[in-house]
């Protein structure tokens, strides 16, 4: 008994080693030497690497803040640990960088460290997410406009589907998240006056499983002929809904049309395959815009407090054309 047991423990520990081994080596914490001359030294505190969107965002930032573009980038990924991220920003201040870019993990708790940066005369630029601190503590913000994304999706639905009476169900994102709230607001605004009726709406928590379960429920409740259009607050829920629609014996993209937001790879693939009808992109490629903003801020030019990235949109043909060259 005891021997068997020890063998089990040995296997377990060996397995742990194997597991850590095969996934290692993703984050390179590049750190540059002190820049001289015209090189702008920038510290970028990223949230972590929790999703494909985030990886694409990191790549874009690293490319934009490259040596060729006149930057010296100090990169830190905090693995979604707010304390580690604040520590990273503090270390940027100690290193005497010229500007700090932060994608804040959480909204709160930034006042002290931003004041320290202000005392050291280092401008802070927020990327992607915002903070609850007083706007005077940071120079500017660059990110995606969720409401405009919802509006673009709604406009397509109103123009292409809403000309005939349409029964629509909505797969909402995580209840209370700004992405879910703002996308819903924008979409509802755009479909006002069209022949689209929202017959039901429920949260799918931004996950594939959630999207599939909720869609299954809707299909049971209204029947596959009782639903004409699905608006999913993100691609993952749309992908779940596709599975549910197929299981119910209907064809996604034809019998039941799908509009979604995000533009992740699997979503674009489904769009190219004709299973989704329209995707509004939530652009992770914020690097170039962020780099331009940093240059303006350092050059003491006036900048807007909030800057929205350009979000593209794709129909099925455009997705086919765009897929081979997509960065994410």
């Amino acid at each position: 008994m005891k021997k068997k047991f020890l063998a089990g423990v040995a296997i377990a520990s060996a397995m742990t080693l194997f597991l850590t081994g095969c996934g290692s080596g993703s984050d390179d914490k590049a750190s540059g030497s002190g820049g001289g001359g015209d090189v702008i030294k920038v510290g970028f505190a990223q949230t972590g690497s929790e999703s494909g969107w985030r990886s694409a965002n990191t790549d874009s930032m690293k490319k934009a803040f490259s040596k060729e573009n006149g930057f010296d980038l100090v990169f830190n990924a905090a693995d979604n640990d707010p304390a580690a991220q604040i520590a990273a920003v503090r270390s940027f201040i100690n290193q005497g960088v010229d500007a700090i870019v932060v994608a804040p993990i959480v909204e709160d708790g930034w006042d002290d460290v931003f004041k320290e940066a202000a005392d050291a005369k280092i401008p802070v630029i927020l990327e992607d997410r915002t903070v609850s601190s007083d706007p005077s503590l940071y120079a500017t913000w660059i990110g995606d406009n969720f409401e405009a994304e919802g509006e673009a999706a709604g406009k397509w639905a109103a123009d292409n589907v809403g000309t005939a009476p349409t029964k629509m169900v909505v797969l909402e994102g995580t209840t209370g998240s700004s992405a879910a709230n703002d996308r819903a607001t924008g979409f509802d605004k755009a479909i006002a006056g069209s022949k689209i009726t929202k017959i039901d709406s429920q949260t799918g928590d931004f996950t594939r499983d959630g999207g599939k379960k909720v869609m299954e429920g809707f299909l049971q409740k209204y029947g596959k002929d009782g639903i004409d259009l699905v608006f999913a607050h993100n691609d993952d829920m749309a992908l779940g809904a596709i599975e549910a629609i197929k299981a119910a014996g209907a064809t996604p993209g034809k019998d039941i049309k799908i509009v979604s937001i995000d533009g992740v790879h699997d979503g674009m693939q489904a769009l190219a395959d004709g299973e989704i009808n329209y995707i509004v992109e939530c652009n992770p490629l914020l690097g170039d815009d962020a780099a331009a903003l940093v240059k303006k801020v350092i050059g003491k030019e006036t900048v807007e407090k909030a800057n929205f990235a350009k979000d593209g949109a794709f129909d099925q043909e455009q997705a086919k054309a765009a897929l081979p060259t997509r960065a994410y």
Binding site: G23, S55, D266
Partner: peptide, 13 residues
């Protein structure tokens, strides 16, 4: 965390 390492932070389809 281990699961995220195995999938490299992506959703494996």
């Amino acid at each position: 965390g281990v699961a995220l390492l195995i999938t490299d932070g992506f959703i494996t389809t």
